[in-house]
């Protein structure tokens, strides 16, 4: 059996307070705390790139597990902000840690749905090829592409990365997955000339309409009732989006909390950053994870705690 064994994460210590931006964006404390839900956003050091953040997350993973990274069989990275267009950042990370030459490396270009897609890809890749140990890195620091005057993005996105260890000694076994794309609406969240632009209303409508339907579909696919799910980990787009999905599904808010208040929306790393807290937590069986955003794209699955 192949599945998630452990997770390492990296959130930069440097932060920007949204309270300091209240006058700049004409917002108040209520808006920060109850609507976007993000009080602070993490900001990487200038000059640091996606691979640097990914390496930091791997260092945390190695600290937590004592893994000898030189022997891993594959390393897959999810990013849409690679250090350079060529090469893939997984090769840079491979070189940084001096992994063995027989280690497969490739990148996946996806945003907020990237962790769930990546999880399915790495598990299938490892099973098909008889691999025992792999790492899924998610690292997509948006701070380099956010315009300081853009209220829609500056208050929400934080930098961060995660490194998920996939092995034959899993803590979580993945159930069946769901995937989807609405390519004709790709412009809702797009980067032109290093400037990110987001149609907040478009993204909200997408999340509010599609994610609840997808939750029911993934529950049915995995033969589960909504009451059998112990924790719902929705991509942390904003508190407003997460709360709207929770309300539409009639979920107990205790099972679907907003976690990103002190770091922000870390794109494909949002789910593994939350999931890390449940690695050693007992008393739960089923965790539903759901990523959605850039593309527009979504993916979900059920993680069964072993």
């Amino acid at each position: 059996m192949i599945g998630i064994e452990n997770i390492g994460t990296y959130l930069p210590e440097r932060k920007t307070s949204n309270y300091d931006l209240m006058d700049h964006f004409d917002i108040d404390e209520h808006f920060i705390e109850n609507k976007i839900g993000v009080r602070e956003t993490t900001r990487k050091e200038k000059g640091k790139k996606s691979s640097d953040l990914g390496c930091k997350a791997i260092e945390d993973l190695l600290f937590r597990t004592g893994l000898d990274i030189r022997n891993i069989d594959c390393l897959i990275a999810v990013t849409q902000n690679p250090d350079t267009n060529i090469p893939h950042i997984s090769a840079r990370i491979h070189g940084q840690f001096e992994c063995k030459e027989e280690c497969a490396c490739f990148d996946i270009s996806l945003g907020c749905s990237g962790f769930v897609y990546g999880l399915s890809v790495i598990e299938a890749f490892m099973k098909d090829n008889g691999l025992e140990t792999g790492i899924l890195v998610t690292s997509d620091p948006y701070s380099d592409i956010i315009h300081p005057d853009d209220k829609n993005t500056r208050l929400l996105f934080g930098d961060g990365a995660a490194a998920t260890l996939i092995s034959s000694k899993p803590v979580f076994e993945s159930g069946k997955f769901n995937f989807g794309t609405i390519g004709k609406r790709y412009k809702e969240l797009i980067c032109h000339d290093s400037n990110l632009s987001m149609n907040g209303r478009g993204i909200f409508n997408f999340a509010a309409r599609y994610v609840p339907k997808d939750v029911y579909a993934i529950l049915e696919k995995n033969n589960l009732e909504i009451g059998e799910v112990d924790v719902f980990l929705f991509h942390q787009g904003s508190k407003f989006i997460a709360d709207t999905i929770t309300r539409k599904l009639g979920i107990d808010p205790e099972k679907s909390q907003f976690h990103a208040a002190t770091y922000g929306n870390t794109v494909s790393s949002s789910i593994p950053i939350m999931l890390k807290d449940y690695i050693e937590k007992d008393g739960m069986k089923n965790i539903l994870i759901s990523g959605f955003g850039v593309g527009l794209s979504w993916s979900s699955t059920i993680l069964n705690k072993l």
Binding site: I36, G200, R201, F204, N205, A208, R209, F240
Partner: peptide, 25 residues
Amino acid sequence: DSLDKSSVFLEIEDHFGVEIPDTEI
């Protein structure tokens, strides 16, 4: 606020079967 407006207009679209373009908001 703008977020509540998004929520209201989404429900209006779904309830009345109309599409409200961003340019109309």
